[in-house]
Design a protein around this nucleic acid. Structure first.
Lengths: 221, 221
DNA sequence: CCCCGGGTTACGGTTTCCCGTAAGAAAGAC
DNA sequence: GTCTTTCTTACGGGAAACCGTAACCCGGGG
């Protein structure tokens, strides 16, 4: 079993229960921090002392407070950790439920497990830890169904950009200009209209307002 | 101190840490349930046995699963409990951070305390429990600032209705019809335009898409 | 009774958006 | 090279939304 585990979690209550779960698993050395910067510091220090951690359990969203941080969120922390200690296994424990976000964690950051804070999360946490101790990856059964649900429409970068601009109050007719600034193509007004039309049709919407709330719900903007 | 406490919380991990917190406070009888229906049942049964609970700690959002419930969320649970046992003190422990929602809990449902799942939530939970044991109400210091922030614009019922209809894809010109159906006034097309204009101006927006995401963010729709 | 003021509604002109068609540009096949 | 095919852009008519103005309705006060 894992011998040295680090927990990065700002919610005191979650932090407590994760520690308790690790206790149940018989993991003796479980350090915990409430800030991302501390997490990275501890990992680096542990490596220097030849006692590196072999598992990081981290949340995604960390709340700002008076204690200003260089690393502001779990995603950034994971990127930094991957640099500092590439072999460290990473388990993300978060309430995030947006397929787009979780997919990106697996695909782009190569996390080993994602456990969502939900009904049986403590049990699932144990299962996930056991699983990634032996193999390299754990994918929650609960998640898969949700991932399928997103297949209503595959948003392209330009789609997200357009909707994002709309939600910021940019008039449709000015969007081509902003797209060019960002180097996104296509950028013609007709193309913008066409993409919007396409999205509305695919999702059976009639108004852009619906698109905006939809993307908001799925964390795409 | 409270003697008989019931915890309604579907997240296993949160449930664990709340139990641990109560333990720390020396509360011996702390039952816990994962479903709202169970919570109500236990409360009623305890009353019948002349051993009523004196504190309920509940979450707001309960996730659906195979186990279909009559009561689907914390808000509904609180309403039901207020019927069953009016003198029961209620502490809400949730991640919800929208001023509109939390205000409604205090004002309309008369909860005794709201503790947000956040950085020092376990400590705050202890403080809140101690406070409402002596007096009747605990209001988090962290929350007050947030409540002020909402004063950008006071949304009327008709405003919410209009934005809600927009977000459902109803064309603006058809909104008068839907408003009449719901018995909301004013319902004229000009009034709809005027209210939208007013809201946009107050919030310094230029497009309805912005209004929609704004209301989404604050839980108004 | 009339008058007044707030709120609501009706009506035009202008702008923006929507959508179909067609012209133009880029990438690949032969 | 030319010819497709596909993607992108331009254009124009029609619908919707925007916005200012003016008419309307409806209580309260004189």
């Amino acid at each position: 079993m894992f011998e040295r585990v680090l927990i990065a979690e700002d919610h005191e209550s979650s932090n407590i229960s994760v520690r308790k779960t690790l206790e149940d698993l018989g993991i003796e050395i479980a350090h915990y921090v409430f800030y991302c910067d501390d997490a990275l510091t501890w990992i680096q220090k542990a490596r220097q002392n030849d006692e590196p951690y072999d598992l990081l359990i981290t949340d995604l969203s960390f709340e700002e407070d008076h204690n200003k941080q260089r690393i502001t969120g779990g995603t950034e922390l994971i990127k930094a950790v991957r640099q500092a200690q590439p072999n460290l296994k990473i388990l993300v424990f978060s309430a995030e439920n947006k397929a787009a976000v979780i997919d990106a964690l697996y695909d782009e950051l190569g996390i080993n497990a994602y456990v969502r804070k939900a009904r049986n999360d403590a049990q699932e946490l144990k299962l996930a830890i056991n699983t990634i101790y032996k193999s390299s990856k754990y994918i929650s059964a609960n998640l898969r169904q949700n991932i399928k649900a997103k297949n209503a429409y595959e948003f392209a970068d330009v789609d997200i950009a357009i909707i994002s601009l709309l939600s910021q109050g940019i008039p449709q007719k000015n969007i081509p200009f902003h797209l060019q600034e960002k180097g996104i193509s296509p950028s013609g007004l007709s193309s913008v209209e066409k993409r919007l039309n396409l999205m509305r049709e695919a999702l059976e919407f009639s108004k852009n307002e619906q698109l905006v709330v939809y993307c908001k719900d799925f964390g795409l903007i």
